[in-house]
Amino acid sequence: MTTGLSEFFQYNLWANLRLLDACAQLSDAQLDATMIGTFGSVRETLMHLFASEEGYVKSFTGTTPTPPLKELNTFVGFDELRRRAERSGKELITIAEQRDLSETFYLDGGTYEAQAVIVAIQAINHGIDHRSQIATLLSLQGIELPALDSWGYNDALREK
């Protein structure tokens, strides 16, 4: 079922990988800075972002990498985050292209009902929200991230 949603996930993967590339250049102090109103430090937010993305994939497929990021208490490093981001990002693209998004999911141990399309929308929204939080954390330190918005994505597509 083609919905056009896969393009959103292609953008999401591009933005996630671009964010990881930029953050890999930061110092420990920059990665560990926090502020009220954000999820946590850059490291914590990245781990949460990609653990959640694995969870969205699990909602559709029933599978997750071993061990799931959500079970790890320490930062796994940028190479591992990139590998996992590529995996979950590509899986979400495939899901958007091939799955019936009108399917009903029973989440949180069956206590919460939502259509698959809502889970897909949440995955996009969640990524944008946390990338923005990281951008805020870094901008307060005088660090500017590369463009992660749709205009930056369009420019990247045009450069190919």
Rank of each mutant, 00 (worst) to 15 (best):
L137F: 03
A33T: 15
I121G: 02
I36N: 11
I36E: 15
L26F: 06
E54P: 06
L13Y: 05
P65A: 01
K70T: 06
D21E: 15
K58Y: 11
R83M: 07
T34G: 03
F105T: 01
N12F: 00
A156V: 03
I121D: 04
N125V: 07
S27N: 04
A33G: 08
P67I: 07
A33H: 11
D129V: 02
L137M: 05
N16R: 09
R83A: 14
G109T: 04
S59Q: 01
E91R: 14
S102P: 02
G40P: 06
Q25K: 15
A120I: 09
L5M: 13
I118T: 11
D32H: 04
G109K: 02
Q122P: 00
T64G: 00
A29C: 02
G152S: 04
P68V: 03
L107C: 11
G109V: 04
L148F: 09
E91D: 13
P146G: 10
F78A: 07
G55I: 01
G62W: 03
Q25T: 15
W14Q: 07
V42S: 03
V117M: 06
W151S: 10
G37Y: 03
G40N: 08
Q141H: 11
L138E: 06
N125C: 01
A135V: 02
T111A: 14
D129L: 13
L69C: 04
T94D: 15
G127F: 01
A96F: 07
G152I: 01
E144N: 13
S27R: 05
D21I: 01
L17W: 01
E71V: 08
E159C: 00
L72E: 14
G55R: 11
A123V: 00
V42G: 03
D100W: 06
S27K: 04
W151G: 00
Q25A: 13
K90E: 14
G89S: 05
A96C: 12
E44N: 11
C23G: 03
V57M: 04
I124C: 05
T3Q: 03
R83H: 09
T34Q: 14
P146I: 06
I134Y: 12
Q98W: 02
I93D: 07
F78S: 09
Q115A: 14
R158M: 15
A51K: 01
Q25I: 00
F8Q: 04
G89M: 09
T104K: 12
V57G: 02
T61R: 13
P146S: 12
A22F: 04
F9W: 05
L81T: 12
T3F: 07
N73D: 15
T45D: 04
A22V: 02
